[in-house]
Design a binder for these strands. Sequence first.
DNA 1: CGAAACAGTGTGTACCGTAAACAGTATGCG
DNA 2: CGCATACTGTTTACGGTACACACTGTTTCG
Lengths: 295, 295
Amino acid sequence: MSTDTTPEPTGQPQDPAEQPWDGAVAGEPPATLQRLWGTTAPRRRGPKPALSVGRIVRAAMELADAEGLAAVSMARIAEAVGYTPMALYRYVAGKEELLVLMADAVAADLPDLPADTGWRAGLEAWTRAQIDMGLARPWFLDLPLSAAVPGPHRVRWLDQAFGILREVDLPADEKLALVGLLAQHVLGETRVQVESRRAAVERVRREAGLPDGTPEAELDPAAIDAAHPYAGFEAMLGRYASPATYPHLFEAFAAWDGTTTDAPPEDDIGFGITIVLDGVEAYLRRRGALPAGEG
Amino acid sequence: MSTDTTPEPTGQPQDPAEQPWDGAVAGEPPATLQRLWGTTAPRRRGPKPALSVGRIVRAAMELADAEGLAAVSMARIAEAVGYTPMALYRYVAGKEELLVLMADAVAADLPDLPADTGWRAGLEAWTRAQIDMGLARPWFLDLPLSAAVPGPHRVRWLDQAFGILREVDLPADEKLALVGLLAQHVLGETRVQVESRRAAVERVRREAGLPDGTPEAELDPAAIDAAHPYAGFEAMLGRYASPATYPHLFEAFAAWDGTTTDAPPEDDIGFGITIVLDGVEAYLRRRGALPAGEG
DNA sequence: CGAAACAGTGTGTACCGTAAACAGTATGCG
DNA sequence: CGCATACTGTTTACGGTACACACTGTTTCG
């Protein structure tokens, strides 16, 4: 982007052959990227395709929503759309590519954030929206690292972050680094939330004596909310920790009265966001990048 | 731990039956936790076991080190230790449990940190050591969320964090939340590092025209270090971004001169740590928890 | 000396992702 | 028009996975 040639509005066909990364050596880029960005040239001959990439991805996501990522197999997807497994390979290079497409597609549901809240409130909203998305689709966290390819929806979300950061005076690469830091925090926070909820559900189910596969809907939501988040951890400590084995942990938790402080922001998510954004604010101040009136 | 009964130094057998979570309903806890903490009661009758959990886990880790987590299958492990695949099931409940054991075992190599550096330097060292571990064993990042069960080595590492935080005046649950935040940041940062290195290696290999499976050792290390970390991202921008599609991104990167600022700490890792620890410091100050002389 | 508890093996099932060969269909070109 | 061509979805098959179950052989306790 440091060149002065303006790129075309949307990607053009531009002869799929002769791309530097094409050929036997290549990783996934060419076909996968085209599928991601919807820039595959329409076919001219032969029967009209009955399926579409979009429909396949949508079926895969519904499956993941309902039964988790582990349930997403080529066979199950094919069954859902009413074709044979091998038919999918006419639309998608393989399962790995399908996961890439899914990873971008989830970002389509991210909201349009209001502009003109300051950078800090903006980033907080940006962060929270993403965590909400992760909570709604926990399977997102199970996607492999290799599925994190920038696609149109993901980049749109990134664009919003840059919109929020317009008022901040920093070169683009530093903004990108900051947004990346935030994005990583989001992923981690979501993991914690999802995992702690899953543990709470499991504990409530066990206490109610219900069988393993019981859907969450049959459990008491209040009991789930009330389930102490550190319960499993404390049980582990009580069983295995001693002054001899884990002195500092033992000391700290022996002195603890067992009550959770709510001096931090009322919710767990806010706790992390506040700390990270405080750090970001310190960085901006150090760099003299705060908008006028805040510096 | 808010009770006054001192737990025994190390877990005792304490009758594996009659545990609340035992039986058909249970998830993994009983057997898996016992295997994790090495508290399985020795068998009394029958032939002496030829294998051991430790040997199996070690073999699995060697396999993962050499060929990645995807190469770790029950069959390959069995081959490595010289027995049939089914023999492993006498020692381990299944593959999932094995991954749990591996996840804890990696933490065994984490160093003993020096005491008496202040809380901030201590936490930074704690963080960096963990990132180094992740870089040394990238497969660690591929482990599923479900493998994150607290085992002896993981808890020992947590204990060190609490040792570092002794001088900080905060209830145990808040310390735990802070350490958790840091741990999540570490995971994210390691992901970024591993992924960007992998991308750099791939790009260098492509430019050198070498085949896909070429081991990293045959590539020019200097070229890998020099490979611009944002190259792939910029290529994507140049091809697909326009003022119409991604206005803010376009604007920011159009104004950018293409040079990376090194105003932040010299290395990428320090960039993130500094921001997060600044946030933590702000939190401690707000809570009046800073050690005497720092408040 | 049984009997019971255990170790490791052999065999088999139910999946998984996907390569290859195939028959049917719509299109562009001579 | 007619046919080669490119494309569709299907069939079949392969090598891989985790693991259930029945089995033989070994060790130790009552």
